[in-house]
Amino acid sequence: MESKSGHEQKKVRTSYGLIFILLAVFTAIEVGASYLPASFKIPILLLMAVIKASLVVLYFMHLKSDARLYAMFFAVGFVLIIPIVLILTVVMPSVR
């Protein structure tokens, strides 16, 4: 059982609040960036999406501090995407 001191609890709450603010600010930046030309906006938006998703997974879902075993099983999903990409783009020429 994890027992935290009052100071630690306050620190945890502050970090969650900070992450929430970051996610909100990044969302506002994304909406603004979506009106830029494609060559500018695509790298910005992809980077923002990766940062936002990582913040939620690592901190809100506690993957950063939890057992590595959870991350391993979650990562299997990402590994399985690779053959799907290959099937859709290489093996099935009709969808290229």
Partner: peptide
């Protein structure tokens, strides 16, 4: 929530 972050990017923003 994470899935929506990705959908929002690919369906609406890019």
């Amino acid at each position: 929530d994470v899935v929506w972050v990705v959908l929002f990017t690919f369906f609406y923003l890019i």
